[in-house]
Design a protein around this nucleic acid. Sequence first.
DNA 1: CTGTTAGCGCATTCAC
DNA 2: GTGAATGCGCTAACAG
Lengths: 350, 350
Amino acid sequence: MTETGIGTGRSTPATLHDVAREAGVSLATASRSLNGSTRKVNDEYRQRVLAAAARLDYSPNLSAQAVARGTTTTVALLVADIADPYFSSIAAGVVAEADQERLIVTMAATERDPERELELVRTLRGQRPRVMILAGSRPTSDPTEGALGEELAAYERSGGRVVLISRNEFDFRTVIVENTAGADALARELVGIGYRRFAVITGGEGLRTAADRVDGFRAGLAAAGGTLDDEHVVRAAFTRDGGYDGMRQLIESGLDGIELVFAANDVMAVGALSAVRDAGLVPGTDVAVAGFDDIPTVRDVTPALTTVRVPLEELGRRALRLALGDESASSEGAVRTEVVLRASTPARIA
Amino acid sequence: MTETGIGTGRSTPATLHDVAREAGVSLATASRSLNGSTRKVNDEYRQRVLAAAARLDYSPNLSAQAVARGTTTTVALLVADIADPYFSSIAAGVVAEADQERLIVTMAATERDPERELELVRTLRGQRPRVMILAGSRPTSDPTEGALGEELAAYERSGGRVVLISRNEFDFRTVIVENTAGADALARELVGIGYRRFAVITGGEGLRTAADRVDGFRAGLAAAGGTLDDEHVVRAAFTRDGGYDGMRQLIESGLDGIELVFAANDVMAVGALSAVRDAGLVPGTDVAVAGFDDIPTVRDVTPALTTVRVPLEELGRRALRLALGDESASSEGAVRTEVVLRASTPARIA
DNA sequence: CTGTTAGCGCATTCAC
DNA sequence: GTGAATGCGCTAACAG
């Protein structure tokens, strides 16, 4: 078929120079035909160049373009854990939006390690990405926090745009999620359908997102008339297994009249559900469970999980739009959340 | 704090040139101190350069390095859907391994569209990635298949390495998963615990992975003595909703004595489980369900899902190692799978 | 060891 | 419109 005459052995990719020669035009003309702002080059030449490029299977070297132009088409995305549905949904949103803008996204995982996060930001900066999106909060008072802030600030000073998703440690553009208000609303609704005595499973010390959700939940309870004793707030890893462990702790200490356990996110809640079951109890009946996020799988667990819906993929899309200066994205305010009552919290006959 | 003296306004990132000047050495020396193969530069100078770099908050421009070196540190990863746990687990593996090798991974989603996949491969080639990993099979006889093959071949000719994960359309390095053998083993075990009449929910026409699994399942059944009528093989989208729909179809046509439904992957199986429940039946009791992959969530659904375990994250890691020429990765052969019997397929008293 | 110089692939000024 | 020349940030010979 279309052989380039280069033979079948190893070779180097065709360069713009090759294309120009093949088309019998200058480098500049080739460049303009292939990329330069439209309508500047004779259509005759243009066609010749296009044909030559196709014949040579030319693919523009993005790195070279970046160097010459002084700007890239890259978006860097930092998440805690790619396999976590919360983050993978966000990532899917970022990638989808980036694709529309013909941007390429590079992805890295911090594995919830603040030092690692800082390290990654430094590395990723080398790419000179147009945008840097960070999702997943870190402990509020981590020693490296200042350094991260400096690093991000420096990045912005050099023309980059950083966007945070649901974290409020710094003063950068942020896709704000109604964590507090959402949890508050959830608490009220739960009290409304008859629950009174609550427990909470939350993330590690100082995790902002978790803290906000717990605070909101507490506020809602206070307003509506539910009770949450301090000894019924257990800390655990912000993961499925953390949720499992947290629930097991609660159960081992006798449950103590607790009617409903609120886990600060869905993956934890799902783990909690399994812990209930493994303890020989019936989730929803013996103890109700609620989560936060509405990740895809919560529809398929049994009982289906009551949660606060967060449009995860939209978070990712919004983050990128915000970075790109889309006015509508910034004027939309916080991302709305919505309480979704399901079978894991059946109405209680008070 | 450490101000660079550049002021607070917008500025351009410090260049190696700046660092050299600041340190009072030549460009070459600066380059060598910061990157060049170790032990070549006077430690005195080296320190000066390092200090200057820190002071200027220097970050090497990866694009420029790529152009100068003629090689990048990029890995391109192509998956069907980032939010799908199957792919996000694989991605997590690729990213983890890449990180160890100090490689950066760029990610894109084909959304199961062959044309889109081809388009993405073309775009990604512009990055001159060292490696290109494609996961998620496409229909066996898609019109663009030839073009994709050509494109990938051209990429390899120019020095790149392509690795396929669990797809066997082409003749590139591949991380082979025991799809057929795994399903075969599953079928035998299922017959072994008393099941006889089966149904299957599989993916769209010609999806290789799905086809292999179904073939294997059929073979196992044939060998062990189970029955699978052709009208009990239903096709659906290779997604959670596809699984749901497939199961609903089966139920609507009366189930017809079917004791167990095998879904070609776990996300479908999970959807199927929900369909059973929504139809007012009890999964595991009224009809058993089994899947394939062992994605994280199947432990948390009820009943827990019987499946064939595939080390998803390891798939991703292996793919990268294979691309990088790791001998052990290529000599390990196909990735082993393992049948995991759980509550969704309780033993039947024959 | 260190500095000078010539590219790497491409965009873009500047003359023609 | 088109081409020649310059430069982007960096590496890698090449001489000292």
